[in-house]
Computed example of a mutant assay.
Amino acid sequence: MTGDRTRTGDGPHVLYVHFDGLGPATTERYEALLALLTDITPVVQALPPDAALADVRGALRYFGRDAAELAQLVRLRALALHGTDCTVGVAASPLLARMAAQAGEPGQVREVRPEETAAFLDRRPVAALHGVGPATARTLCAYGLDSVGRLAAAPPATLQRILGAAPGRRLHERARGIDPTPVTPTAPPRSATAEHRFERDELDAAHRRSTLLALADDLGFRLRAEGQVARALTLTVRYADRSATTRTRTLSEPTAHTPALAAAAYALHDALGLQRARVRGVALRAEELTAAELAARQLSFDVREEKARRAEAAADRARRRFGTAAVRPAGSSPPRAA
């Protein structure tokens, strides 16, 4: 055992657990894996569709193990009970735990101790810092701030001039490993996900948009079939270096209408500025689902919209009868097989 380390409040006590190999149709298994975590600690924050944060500070003394050993226990139980491997980052904050998990090959436990924080962050590319998307990374690299170490060494005033006061200050703190964000216990929200992994790094923005349209159409059909509407839409873009960017947009009104979902997906995608990004996969998640009959919908006097909804209903009937591939929206392309 590690003795005093299990009683050190500022030592590693946060686990970022990524459940490897989960897809959009594995909600039940994801919830079972979350239950496995709650058997160790009640402080579990769901990060659907395939990850979670766990604060194990209160479990260290009970189990007589340090955080890294508890992470190994999580991996062992997930494999034995659910046939699912995990990649686990262990650190003193959610930021460092997440980055530790993403710093190497899947299926490992990687720990960053407080005394190792500066060295760990110093050699990481700036794009690996959680919260830095491709557009922000390009801006920082244009100023020579291409590593987390250089970002940490830059004067805070410089970052505030480049990025703005609040984002610059927040990024400077993260570059030094400062992350006061607590792990907030949450259950997985009611959501539905559609995702696609490209067979090769996708550089073509037009093909990414056509794939997003196909995913939005799949989500819309599933929601309409279940009598559900979404209040928000989340886009996750995964890159060749195994990093990812996630953005969420609240919809103007709860909807399961494919054009509305696709428009939100396009806006999220275009805002990322992925001109040269090597995209490995994209996922859309419809959030905050509620029953369609309980959601208020603004009446429309646009004849074209009403025709589009009638055509959508007809297409849904055809899909239920002949299969989901029977009808596709114009402009979408079946995602290339992964």
Rank of each mutant, 00 (worst) to 15 (best):
M1Y: 13
T6V: 13
T8L: 13
P12F: 06
V14H: 04
Y16S: 07
V17R: 05
G21V: 13
P24D: 13
P24A: 15
A25S: 15
R29N: 09
R29W: 09
Y30I: 08
A35R: 11
T41S: 12
V43E: 08
L47R: 10
P49N: 03
D50H: 11
L53D: 00
V56R: 04
L60P: 08
Y62H: 15
F63M: 10
G64P: 12
A68D: 07
L73F: 12
T84K: 10
S93V: 09
G107P: 08
V112S: 00
E115N: 10
E116D: 11
V132P: 07
T136P: 06
R138G: 06
D146I: 06
D146K: 08
S147A: 04
A152F: 04
I162M: 12
G164Y: 15
P167G: 07
G168H: 03
E173L: 15
P182S: 03
T184E: 15
P185G: 08
A187S: 10
P189F: 07
S191F: 02
R197F: 06
F198E: 03
D201W: 07
D204A: 14
T211P: 05
T211W: 01
D218F: 06
G220C: 00
A230W: 01
R231S: 14
R242C: 10
T250V: 13
S252G: 12
A263S: 05
Y266T: 10
L268Y: 01
H269W: 13
D270T: 09
E287S: 02
E288K: 04
T290V: 13
L299W: 12
V303W: 09
E306M: 13
A314G: 03
R319A: 05
R321C: 07
G323E: 01
T324L: 11
V327I: 14
P334V: 14
